[in-house]
């Protein structure tokens, strides 16, 4: 039986009727057309589907949409303010923290969460905190540089 839910997505209130077996990532991509959140491995290991749920980084491919009833969600689309990129997005651009770009939305969302939890962490902390995000192109060097730079910029702003 479909379940009525109400949640905040990128600052917007969304009311919907969903089946209990609908994954949150499918709800975001297919029903909300927020296709920035990617599905990489489909087994909750790669982190390409990372979003923020009530301020915490989570894997939206391992969460049922009904579990997000009442939650506040931020996806990659919710980071920028209009045409102005979020500092973490800008840092990924500047430091070229990507090659093919498929893992990038999850990396950026994880990076924002790392900065929120650790301030301006050193590379070892960043690497440990990226355990849930896989990139198969870059070797991570520029991703780690980008997150360090983005975290510094976020700290300078607040």
């Amino acid at each position: 039986m479909a379940v009525q839910i109400s949640l905040q997505i990128n600052g917007r209130t969304v009311e919907a009727e969903v089946q209990p077996n609908l994954l949150l990532v499918d709800f975001l991509r297919q029903e909300q057309r927020l296709t920035g959140t990617h599905v990489g491995c489909d087994t909750a290991q790669c982190g390409a589907c990372t979003i923020h749920l009530d301020g915490r980084a989570v894997k939206s491919c391992a969460i049922l949409t009904v579990q997000a009833d009442g939650a506040r969600i931020t996806t990659i689309e919710g980071l920028a303010s209009g045409a102005e990129l979020h500092p973490m997005q800008r840092a990924f651009h500047r430091h070229h923290g990507l090659q093919c770009g498929f893992c990038t939305p999850g990396m950026v969302m994880a990076g924002v969460s790392i900065a929120e939890n650790h301030g301006t962490p050193d590379p070892a902390v960043i690497r440990a905190e990226l355990e849930g995000n896989l990139c198969r192109c870059t070797g991570y060097h520029n991703i780690v540089k980008a997150i360090a730079a983005g975290a510094r910029e976020m700290a300078g702003r607040s």
Binding site: A44, G47, T50, L53, R56, A57, V58, K59, A62, I63, A110, S113, E129, E131, G132, N133
Partner: peptide, 9 residues
């Protein structure tokens, strides 16, 4: 346990 995203849930 697991990774940060798993530990958050």
């Amino acid at each position: 346990i697991g990774d940060p995203q798993v530990r958050n849930r």
